[in-house]
Design a protein around this nucleic acid. Structure first.
Lengths: 220, 220
DNA sequence: AAGATTTAGTTAGAAGCTATCACGAACCCT
DNA sequence: AGGGTTCGTGATAGCTTCTAACTAAATCTT
């Protein structure tokens, strides 16, 4: 049994309400974007009146931050799982990333989309981001290291790597992880945003081509 | 002296007010993001009272659409100018793109940032997007065509190219323009969003590395 | 130039939102 | 069974977009 392991029934109820609020929030975000998220609307859809939600979330920003945190967490778990069950395979990570992105585009944009100028993510969120970088670095360190790649790798060499908790990765792996990140984000982001819409090609094939460019270290 | 060429003085005044509204809007967007744009605040900052602005813009959405249009136009002009004064040089286009992006990150995100799910850009905006693609295709067609690049180029071949008004570009150029777009957007987008912040490397060098990968068709 | 018409800007107001407060009611724990 | 915590409510302030009615000014027409 032991459905919810939490201690007091009050805490269990509280956690359940918070969870339902977040669920409705995700629905709302998926259909109208994060900027259209309304605490009032969520409350009414849950059958309770406006300010009640402020017992569970101090502000709209806190709810959104919570959603961002969950999104990061979800991505980190997805990548970590894909890494484990594939033996730190780069291609597996790429497909996991793409699957996760297509699964909920607005969730992807919550992580990698337009930033609001003032906003500074709390430390625990940037820590999850570091987790992701570490997962990538693991995978790229495991690979038979490709060429040093002239100018940028030297630049990387000249940096003490406070990268990700001093991850023991050679510069080639750092470069690999970075380009993995930027190239796949490049295609995914434009695809999810609909910028490929008019043109008749298959985004999956472009994604595959970019992944291939990463794996072969040369494919144009 | 023919400062403004418009016909009637009323139209000139109207155009001037619209321009000032947009100016204030850009300021607001630069400092607080597009979602925080407030017609009311703009009006007050211009010394007039709330609803007056509705004489000039039918709605908040129309103003934002106008800003998006201007952003696209600005990018198209920048790219076209860079293409002309460099003789359709790909590297010049890349640096023009980067300069334009760094010049006003929120303007970049207005074009390539998080899309709002319901929104459909008007036709004239997608037409400007096609202009940009055409500029890229021009540059890539001018290049000594690189390798055919196995699987994706074949996929492209199998498509009638309604790409950009049937632009006469070989599949290799199409692939080149696409990867130019996705790779540079990948680094720029993450850089502008601050995702490289903790890490000590220089984004410009990563950008240069990605550009190099495009030019040599092989650089890892 | 004088009158008629179009346009600019105002205030008032509806409907929505975030967020705070004070109150009553339900619940949990001892 | 009482006592303190917590939940949910309605009221309220202040913000937003946007409509409507009205005034005043500038322009067009005669």
């Amino acid at each position: 049994m032991a459905e919810s392991s939490s201690a007091t029934p009050r805490e269990r109820y509280r956690a359940q309400v918070r969870a339902e609020v977040k669920e409705r929030a995700w629905e709302q975000i998926a259909t109208a974007g994060a900027s259209a998220l309304s605490l009032n609307a969520i409350a009414k859809r849950m059958g309770m009146s406006g300010p009640a939600l402020y017992r569970y979330f101090a502000s709209r920003d806190e709810l959104i931050t919570e959603l961002i945190r969950d999104a990061y967490r979800s991505l980190a778990d997805t990548l970590r799982a894909a890494s484990e069950e594939s033996g730190a395979d780069v291609a597996a990570l790429a497909h996991a990333l793409r699957g996760w992105a297509l699964d909920d585009p607005q969730r992807y944009f919550l992580v990698y989309g337009t930033p609001v100028p003032g906003y500074h993510a709390p430390d625990d969120i940037t820590a999850i981001a570091s987790e992701n970088m570490a997962t990538l670095l693991d995978a790229w360190t495991a690979r038979p290291s490709a060429d040093p790649a002239p100018p940028f790798a030297e630049h990387l060499e000249g940096l003490g790597r406070q990268w990700v908790d001093d991850h023991p990765a050679p510069p080639a792996a750092l470069h690999g992880a970075l380009t993995f990140w930027t190239r796949l984000h490049g295609v995914l982001s434009l695809e999810l945003a609909g910028h490929f819409n008019g043109m008749g090609f298959d985004p999956a094939q472009l994604f595959a081509a970019e992944l291939d460019s990463l794996l072969t270290g040369g494919g144009h």
